[in-house]
């Protein structure tokens, strides 16, 4: 998919307009406790889909970076771009994670009576956020750009793999969740008998995920221009031309 193409951005905008209107106006099942907060399903859950997708993008760019470094021209322009792509993906993932947490806390406040419970999913999310906050701390403690890129990539690969394995493997992280669809709780599929909610939920997942990718491409472009502009300013004789960006 050409990321510069306009059709998927239009598609994303249309989907999100549809989600905003249908999400707030379409009929939903009348349920105790949940009541109208069930509409948060269209905004809270897609944040986690978007976050996982964008973190996976970051992992892929980190692996590509490491594989290329291992061969020859370690500090090529292509490699700097890969580092920027991985770093920006983590930034967007953190943005989505924060939004997911906030929407979840509002929802939890109405249904569970507390914004933060000791739910396994919340704990996993907290650990994930801590890992990626440490990623930013690690980046900021390097002064050399190439070294920073390499060690950030190494940390990213190690932590992504460990995180995914740990949250899926550890029993304590799976059982007794009060989230719908976990630990014996009925999921939303059981409530939504006529599947009317699916008509909004699936477009919402696709729309918010596409939006994450879109913001990511803009952030990558911005950081690339900034990096190469600085290189140009610091060294006017540098072979790097801005049209290579």
């Amino acid at each position: 998919m050409n990321l510069k193409a306009i059709w998927w951005k239009l598609f994303c905008v249309l989907l999100l307009i549809y989600v905003a209107i249908a999400g707030l106006l379409s009929p939903v099942p009348r349920l105790n406790i949940l009541n109208e907060t069930i509409r948060n399903l269209y905004f809270h859950v897609p944040m986690w889909f978007g976050q996982i997708i964008i973190f996976t993008v970051s992992l892929v760019y980190s692996i590509l970076y490491l594989l290329d470094t291992n061969q020859k021209n370690a500090s090529s322009i292509a490699n700097s771009k890969r580092d920027i792509a991985a770093h920006s993906a983590v930034t967007i993932g953190m943005l989505y994670g924060t939004l997911g947490l906030l929407t979840g806390m509002i929802w939890g406040n109405f249904t569970w009576g507390t914004p933060w419970s000791s739910d396994p999913k919340l704990n996993c999310t907290a650990i994930g956020m801590l890992i990626y906050l440490a990623y930013f701390v690690l980046r900021s403690s390097f002064t050399d750009i190439d070294k920073r890129a390499r060690f950030a990539a190494i940390y990213n690969v190690f932590c992504y793999v460990m995180f995914v394995v740990l949250i899926f493997v550890i029993p304590r992280m799976r059982e007794f969740s009060i989230h719908p669809g976990n630990g014996g709780n009925p999921g939303f599929a059981t409530y939504d008998l006529d599947s009317a909610m699916r008509l909004v939920f699936y477009p919402a997942v696709i729309g918010w995920s596409l939006l994450a990718v879109w913001i990511w491409t803009i952030l990558v472009k911005y950081r690339e221009i900034k990096l190469f502009w600085n290189m140009r300013m610091n060294n006017p004789l540098s072979a790097v031309a801005l049209d290579q960006v």
Binding site: I127, L130, I131, A134, V137, L138, Y155, C159, M162, F163, L166, I167, I170, R172, M173
Partner: peptide, 14 residues
Amino acid sequence: TILSLPIAIPLLAV
């Protein structure tokens, strides 16, 4: 400490 504790928390749970 900062880098390893987030991973160490789930490990410690086990």
